[in-house]
Amino acid sequence: MTYTVNCSILLTELPLLERPAAVKAAGFDAVEFWWPFASSVPADPEVTAFENAIIDAGVQLTGLNFNAGDMPGGDRGLVSWPARSSEFKDNIDVVAGIGGRLGCTAFNALYGNRIEGEDPDRQDALAVENLAAAAEGVAGVGGTVLLEPVSGAPGYPLLLAGDALAVIRRVEAEAGVVNVKLLADFYHLSVNGDDVPAVIEKHARDFGHIQIADAPGRGAPGTGTLPLREWVARSRELGYGGYVSLEYKEPRETAFAWLTGR
Rank of each mutant, 00 (worst) to 15 (best):
V94N: 05
V23E: 04
A43S: 11
P82D: 06
L61A: 05
A68W: 12
E13D: 12
A25E: 10
D90P: 03
N108D: 14
D44Y: 07
E18I: 06
G69S: 06
S85T: 15
P82N: 02
P15K: 01
I55K: 02
P82E: 01
E87L: 01
G99W: 12
D93I: 11
F66G: 12
K24V: 01
E46M: 10
F50C: 02
G100Y: 11
D90R: 06
A83R: 07
R76M: 11
F37E: 03
S80H: 08
V31I: 11
S86T: 14
Q60I: 07
L102R: 00
R76T: 10
P45G: 04
Q60K: 08
G58P: 13
S40G: 07
F66E: 08
N91V: 11
S39Q: 08
F107T: 09
S40P: 10
E32A: 07
V41S: 10
E87H: 00
D75V: 12
A53T: 13
M71R: 05
N108Y: 15
N91T: 13
N52Q: 08
L17A: 00
V23K: 03
V94G: 02
P72Q: 06
W34R: 07
P72F: 05
I92Y: 14
M71A: 07
G27M: 13
G74Q: 09
L64V: 13
A21F: 00
A21Q: 02
C104W: 05
F88P: 08
G73P: 15
G63V: 13
L78R: 14
G27C: 02
E46L: 08
A96T: 03
S40M: 02
P72V: 11
W34Q: 11
A22V: 08
F50G: 00
N67S: 15
C104D: 07
G58M: 04
T48E: 14
G58T: 12
R76K: 14
T48V: 15
P36T: 02
L61N: 05
F33K: 07
N67F: 15
N52E: 10
E13H: 09
G97S: 06
R76F: 10
P42G: 03
A25L: 03
P45K: 02
S80F: 09
T105N: 14
V95M: 06
A106V: 10
R101T: 02
P15W: 01
L17W: 01
R19Y: 01
N108F: 12
E13S: 11
I55D: 01
N52I: 04
L14M: 10
V47E: 01
V59P: 10
L14V: 04
P36S: 01
R84D: 09
S85W: 12
G103L: 04
T48G: 09
S39P: 01
P20G: 08
P82I: 02
A106C: 15
F107K: 04
A43E: 14
I98H: 04
I55F: 07
V94T: 08
S40F: 00
A57F: 12
V59W: 15
